[in-house]
Amino acid sequence: MELQHSLKERRIAGSYFERVPKRMKARFNVGIVQYAPLAYDASWAMIDAMKNADSTDPRKYLETLRSRTFNGVTGAISFTPRGDLKTASATLYQQQNGKWTVLGVVQIDSH
């Protein structure tokens, strides 16, 4: 299931979702798939925390990860002191006439 339509429709990350799906489709014959943007953001949030902590030791960079906000392709990524996402969302879909239709987006704030 591709998320290009719903993410582009929400304009979460501006032009990212206008150019990257086309490049991926041309190179790999598939667009952005279900969890790819979230995995991308998770990876870069960790890399950002490691850089700012100047360490790859989890005892050092996890504290940095919890105290920073990372601007990812899906929006701002930040964590509670327990390590949960401060704001998480899920998009609900239903298939109608062979097409996926967005029923709604659920936002959960863990502040």
Rank of each mutant, 00 (worst) to 15 (best):
K86F: 06
I47N: 06
L62M: 14
Q96W: 04
R68N: 09
T64A: 10
R59K: 14
E63K: 13
D109I: 13
D54L: 10
Q107D: 13
N52F: 00
Q96G: 01
A90G: 12
Q96Y: 02
T91M: 04
S67G: 14
N71Q: 13
N52G: 02
S55H: 05
I108W: 03
V102M: 11
M46C: 12
K99P: 04
S89H: 12
F79V: 07
G72Q: 05
P81I: 11
I47R: 09
Y61L: 08
T56G: 09
G75E: 05
I108Y: 07
P81Y: 09
A76F: 10
A88R: 00
D57N: 15
F79T: 07
S55D: 06
P81N: 10
L103T: 04
A49P: 02
I77L: 03
T101D: 05
T101I: 15
T64H: 02
T101Q: 13
T101N: 08
G83L: 03
R59M: 03
G75K: 04
D84K: 11
P58D: 11
D84V: 08
E63D: 15
K51R: 14
K60T: 07
L85F: 14
I47T: 10
T56R: 07
G104F: 04
Q94P: 00
S110M: 11
L62T: 12
T91H: 00
Q107A: 05
R82Q: 14
F79A: 02
R66W: 00
L103D: 01
S89P: 05
K86C: 10
N71V: 14
S55F: 00
L62A: 04
A88P: 03
S55V: 03
V105Y: 00
G83Y: 06
Q96N: 09
F70A: 00
Q94G: 08
D48Y: 08
T87I: 15
L103N: 04
L65S: 04
S67Y: 07
Q95D: 12
A45T: 13
V106T: 09
L62V: 10
I77N: 00
D109M: 10
D84S: 12
D84A: 12
I47D: 07
S67C: 12
Y93R: 09
I108A: 10
H111L: 10
N52C: 05
T64Y: 05
V105E: 08
K51M: 15
R82K: 14
W44V: 01
S110F: 05
N97T: 00
M50T: 07
